[in-house]
Design a protein around this nucleic acid. Structure first.
Lengths: 252, 252
DNA sequence: AGGGTTAATAACCGACGAGTCATTAATTGC
DNA sequence: GCAATTAATGACTCGTCGGTTATTAACCCT
């Protein structure tokens, strides 16, 4: 009884929009360019989407759900591991004990999954980080990074209590290192034509981090340590307010 | 013979502009708002600056010079250290030997200086990263990050050759960890009202990184390692093209 | 075939903001 | 005080782009 819409029009618009957003940002991308790329007119866009922002919001929602899903799964796995196997001790880290290595493997698997997801949505990440000036999505990326850091900070605290992480390495530093590193990897993805071997990277990062955080082995003379380093560097080991405040700023 | 310009007008504009840029981005900040904040009219802006972009370019230039200065100074210091003291060995890292600790201290000092500089220009950094969509400065931040990674990658390679960094931790990973971590710290600065104790952080990061990268101690049974971890995770230790290509994209 | 319905078009409107420029105000030297 | 000069003003132009809408085209059903 009526004229049906081109079944692939909506999808085509979505695709073209994401592409333009990467190139010019959410604000910089012109609706007419998006529609033109699909062989449609400007008006057609509004038959399928409320606005540019609504389109991007839809994609972002999808990505967000995938991320949350992954994070809660990882959280459950870690809790399960701690419950059945316990938290690896400092010595186990130094000795490369099976329990430590199993934990690293578990952690690496989860991080690998996150990297894979980031690869799938690399354009969205790129847009979120660099393409949403003065839109409703301003700050979304930063919010997600902060959430990720909070998520990881929780875990780091467990290790800190167990003594797996030495006091010198501020507990708040661990999430920053992890999130920072993964961010760098994500930022580079947009320029890669083919997917690299994330497994190696995820694994390497975890080992680097955990072994780097491990306290100095008991058998090592700690006197050397005191002799060389200026004590002034180490007086304030508390969090120096760096991770305290839950930021709030910028609304255009 | 002529009316002199208000001597503090230019500086006042610079200051107000940076503030607005942080809040609304380079494009989103309106010239009239900037001038209004200084009690001036729109036209006055053009007596002092070619355009908004020119103003920001001036500030950025200044920041860039300070950064380059610091990096080249650090490079010289490291070269000097390697020449007079040599590169710390794996065992020295494990034993927390004086030479290793001196190197960490040197490295920490330099990173501290960088953090201090970032604090001074935290608004500029914020703008560069999140406030230059569709301007000539698009991608500047990313470029600087890449340069920093290249700079650090050079150093990491020296350590890799000496065996201080184990092959498993991809050499390219080290710069990503460092730059990523420092980026996270910089991103947080804009929301802090007072300067935290960067010395503790800079020191902690360096130790975490170097000790995390150190190969497993000789006396530790590496058989455990092989037993638990799937070999598949470790087959491709090469750079998987992640750090190869010198990106080029996005020109509006 | 043709009437009804909806997709799609493109000319149009309106807001917004960068940059201009004729005009006015302030300051200096004589 | 007055002429000369330049700072400073703000109304104006102009291009851009998001969103609207009257009109046309395509399609389905009977």
């Amino acid at each position: 009884m009526a004229r049906p819409a081109d079944p692939k029009a909506r999808n085509s618009l979505l695709h073209a929009a994401r592409e333009r957003f990467v190139q010019h940002g959410l604000k910089g991308a012109r609706i007419e360019d998006i529609t033109k790329a699909c062989g449609l007119s400007k008006g057609a866009f509004y038959l399928h989407f409320e606005s540019k922002e609504a389109l991007f919001g839809e994609v972002l929602q999808e990505f967000g759900e995938r991320v949350r899903e992954l994070l809660s799964k990882h959280k459950a796995e870690v809790i399960e591991f701690f419950k059945t196997e316990g938290v690896p001790t400092t010595d186990e880290v130094h000795q490369q004990a099976p329990r430590y290595l199993r934990y690293i493997e578990l952690s690496g698997k989860s991080n690998l999954a996150i990297l894979e997801l980031c690869w799938e949505y690399k354009d969205v990440i790129h847009i979120m980080v660099r393409g949403v000036q003065n839109t409703a999505f301003e700050g979304t990326a930063w919010l997600m990074l902060q959430q990720a850091m909070a998520h990881l900070g929780h875990q780091a605290r467990v290790f800190a209590e167990k003594g797996t992480i030495r006091g010198e390495v501020t507990a708040g530093l661990v999430p920053a290192v992890l999130v920072g590193t993964y961010s760098m990897l994500c930022f580079q993805m947009i320029d890669m034509k083919q997917k690299p071997d994330f497994a190696v990277l995820a694994h390497g990062i975890n080992r680097l981090l955990y072994e780097g955080c491990a306290p100095v082995a008991h058998h090592v003379a700690s006197s050397e340590y005191e002799k060389v380093l200026k004590p002034s560097l180490l007086t304030s080991t508390e969090d120096c307010g760096l991770w305290a405040e839950k930021t709030k700023r910028r609304n255009s």
